[in-house]
C-alpha cells in the first residue's frame, strides 16, 4: 500500500473554462484509509476536482497526487491505482454486466482468466450474479450504479473516487449503496466522495471539505465543523399545542432573535451559546409561564446549519 500518510493531495489547483473559474486555487488532503467528503452545492467545483485527480482534466495551475503519484506528470501510472465512479454510470448499455466488467479488466491489461474471475467476484459481491448476462439497458438505476461501482473496483484500487454516487437514487437504494461504500472503506481503501447531501457526508465521511464557488471554505471532521458554529440548539415541544405560541414568546429573548417555531411539528428551536446553561434557562422560563413541556433536548447544530452559516444559502436537495 502507499507509504504516504495522505493518499490524495491537491495543492493550489486552479482551473478555468473560458472565462468561468471552476477552481480558484484549492488545496486539500485525504488521509490514507479514510473517507474524505467533498461537500458543496451544484457548480461548486467538486466534479472538476475529481476529474483533475482522475486525469480526465488538466489543471491550469497547482499539483495533484494520488498515492504519491503526480497525476499530471505521470497519468499512466496513476490510472492503474485509482478507481472512478462518475456522476453518471459509465457502463456500456448494450453489453451485459459480465461483458462490461470483463472488458474493463482487459483494458487494465489483466490476463484473460484473471479478468474473468474478478468479474465473477464483483458480480457476486454487488448482488448482480442473476443479472450478469443481461444487457445493462434492462437494469434499474440502482443496479447500474452498483455495476459502475464494480467497474471502479476491478483492480482493487488504492484510492477510490465517487462523484455524487447516490444522486438520483431513491432513499432505499441510497441506503443500500451507503452500506456498500462502508464495506469498501472497511477493506482499507481511501475514498474521496463528493456529495450535495449533508447527511451523506455526515454519515460516510471521516473528514469533510466544504467547497463553494471554486474555493475551499471550511474543512474538518463533522464535529469540528459543527463546533465552528459555537452554538448548541435547545429543542422544546410543549404538551398542549395551544401553548406553543406563548412558549415561543417566552423563549424569544433567550434565542437572541433566532428562536424558531416550526408550526407543523410544534418544535421550538433555540440557539444558545452554552448548551447546558441554555437548557436550564429554557426550563425556568417555561416553568414561570406554567407551560407543560412534552419533550426537551439539546442538540449540536446539524451540518445544514453549518453550511447555511458559511455560505449564506441552504444546500441543494433536502
Amino acid at each position: 500500500m502507499g507509504n504516504t500518510p495522505y493518499a490524495v493531495v491537491v495543492d493550489g489547483v486552479k482551473k478555468s473554462f473560458g472565462s468561468v473559474t471552476a477552481l480558484a486555487g484549492v488545496s486539500l488532503k485525504a488521509e490514507t484509509g479514510k473517507v474524505l467528503g467533498l461537500l458543496g452545492p451544484n457548480g461548486a467545483g467538486k466534479t472538476t476536482i475529481v476529474r483533475i485527480l482522475t486525469t480526465l482534466l488538466q489543471p491550469d495551475a497547482g499539483t495533484a497526487t494520488v498515492a504519491g503519484i503526480d497525476v499530471v506528470k505521470n497519468p499512466g501510472a496513476a490510472r492503474r491505482i485509482f478507481g472512478l465512479a462518475g456522476q453518471y454510470p459509465a457502463v456500456d448499455e448494450m453489453l451485459t454486466g459480465r461483458e462490461n466488467l470483463n472488458m474493463v479488466g482487459r483494458l487494465y491489461h489483466m490476463p484473460r482468466q484473471l479478468a474473468k474471475q474478478r468479474a465473477d467476484e464483483l458480480l457476486e459481491r454487488f448482488a448482480l450474479t442473476d443479472a450478469a448476462n443481461r444487457p445493462i439497458r434492462t437494469y434499474s438505476g440502482g443496479m447500474r450504479r452498483r455495476l459502475d461501482l464494480a467497474a471502479a473496483l476491478v483492480v482493487r484500487p488504492q484510492v477510490l473516487f465517487l462523484d455524487e454516487p447516490t444522486t438520483g437514487l431513491d432513499p432505499r437504494t441510497r441506503m443500500e449503496l451507503w452500506d456498500v461504500i462502508r464495506e469498501l472503506v472497511a477493506d482499507g481503501a481511501t475514498l474521496l466522495l463528493t456529495t450535495q447531501y449533508l447527511e451523506e457526508a455526515d454519515a460516510l465521511a471521516d473528514h469533510i471539505a466544504i467547497i463553494d464557488r471554486g474555493l475551499l471554505i471550511a474543512e474538518g471532521t463533522a464535529d469540528q465543523l459543527k463546533g465552528r458554529l459555537q452554538k448548541d440548539v435547545v429543542q422544546v415541544r410543549v404538551t398542549h399545542p395551544d401553548h406553543a405560541q406563548s412558549a415561543y414568546e417566552a423563549l424569544k429573548v433567550l434565542g437572541n432573535g433566532s428562536t424558531q417555531l416550526d408550526a407543523t411539528s410544534g418544535w421550538i428551536s433555540v440557539p444558545v451559546p452554552h448548551g447546558p446553561q441554555g437548557l436550564v434557562e429554557a426550563v425556568r422560563l417555561l416553568d414561570e409561564r406554567k407551560v407543560a413541556i412534552a419533550d426537551i433536548s439539546l442538540r449540536r447544530p446539524s451540518l445544514d446549519d453549518v453550511f447555511l452559516t458559511l455560505t449564506g444559502k441552504p444546500t441543494a436537495g433536502e
Binding site: T54, T55, G76, F82, L84, V91, V104, L107, Y108, H109
Partner: peptide, 8 residues
C-alpha cells in the same frame, strides 16, 4: 470517461 480513466 471510463476509457480515459483506464491505463489503455
Amino acid at each position: 470517461d471510463r476509457f480515459r480513466s483506464l491505463p489503455m
